[in-house]
Design a protein around this nucleic acid. Sequence first.
DNA 1: ATCTGTATGTTGTCAAAACAACAAAAGGAG
DNA 2: CTCCTTTTGTTGTTTTGACAACATACAGAT
Lengths: 225, 225
Amino acid sequence: MDFIGLSKTALFRGATPREVEAMLSCLGAQARQFSKGEMLCRTGDVVTALGVVLSGSVLIENDDLWGSTTVLDSVGPGQIFAETYACASGEPLMVNVVAAEPTEVLFLNVDRVLRVCSHACDHHSKLIRNLLSISAQKNLNLSRKIFHTAPKSIRGRLLSYLSYQAVRSGSRSFAIPFNRQQLADYLNVDRSALSNELSKMQKEGLLKVDRNQFELLGARQQMEF
Amino acid sequence: MDFIGLSKTALFRGATPREVEAMLSCLGAQARQFSKGEMLCRTGDVVTALGVVLSGSVLIENDDLWGSTTVLDSVGPGQIFAETYACASGEPLMVNVVAAEPTEVLFLNVDRVLRVCSHACDHHSKLIRNLLSISAQKNLNLSRKIFHTAPKSIRGRLLSYLSYQAVRSGSRSFAIPFNRQQLADYLNVDRSALSNELSKMQKEGLLKVDRNQFELLGARQQMEF
DNA sequence: ATCTGTATGTTGTCAAAACAACAAAAGGAG
DNA sequence: CTCCTTTTGTTGTTTTGACAACATACAGAT
């Protein structure tokens, strides 16, 4: 990803490549290279800049009390990371950011992004709107995950998640973006138990499943369980 | 809460009462009254304005598939609501907003907030920074909740939550802002099971508890479980 | 002090889900 | 096609936590 490609990302959407380049110099953006495994930020750090992945990818990881590492997210070209911490001034990181491969990252100081400069105010304010939109979007994603993992039973979680997917797709029949293991992780349940529950629900006539293709059936789904 | 009070809120922090008043007229803010039980927004609505509670309070509620209602949050004077949906343009609400009592609310069109006007740009951009900061902060709160409810066992959740509280307070001894029931709700577990687990952990010497006062003990907490 | 309501702790039962181990199906690569 | 890998489904066992019911402790009011 070069500066031209940036104009297609969520953060710079709406700006032309020329404008992107102008903004970057105006903002004093710093590009840096990282080799595989190198740590860009670590738990406890207080960051003031957000990162834009230009090429390669970074992993957002957490080390628990017992030393084992969990990958929370993977961030690829055009996507940003650490923006939440940079925007909530002063909050120390609860995660590590590690290069998953040779990676080039652009760092943007959030204060300078938010301090509207006298020139180019219109693109600049578009950038700010994009940043806010990204943050709000992330917010909704997190809320939804909490929402779908709130029911105590696997069936409850599945119905919550699948109902939402049906509404979102505007149809009782839809595909989900997860395989079984990923869905189990998302809903915070055991994969085999998830498979099992789906089988049961299918036998009870609540839905039809084939791989990641689902169909919710009948009004009975409001009554059962 | 009047316009003077607004200057002490998270959204308007940094602006004087005079400046707040100037901004409000510049932004075309609309104040409205609601009587108890009145619905301000409902599931499925697409909103373009955020709400600031001036007096009274509103409840953020969810109606599940079976018609029962869950209160997700309560928003009081000086706090804002619906800002996430208003900022993530086009996302329909997944919740209802209901007046819990006679309530006065100020609605701010987010587009106008984000469209920097020619006058008063400095306060205006402070407002935008505040909004982004609120969003980022909310983001971190949601992430933390997801994080602390990720472990499958009650003990795991407790250790995750308590460790964080210890780090945040900078001491092994600290108070938490929840009673048992609230903590159980936050960690998504049964209250009595939570009490029980705390007892066990205390017997095992992992910690000391008295009401909402906690003390994490020794290095053993890294080894056990 | 007593009464009352609320918060917290304790115990036992039971259903649900984690876990483990395996079988079956799907999808590629040669 | 076969071989290999990955994904998904099935079954049985074991652990866990939800739930109910109750006991105890605490705080406020009278």
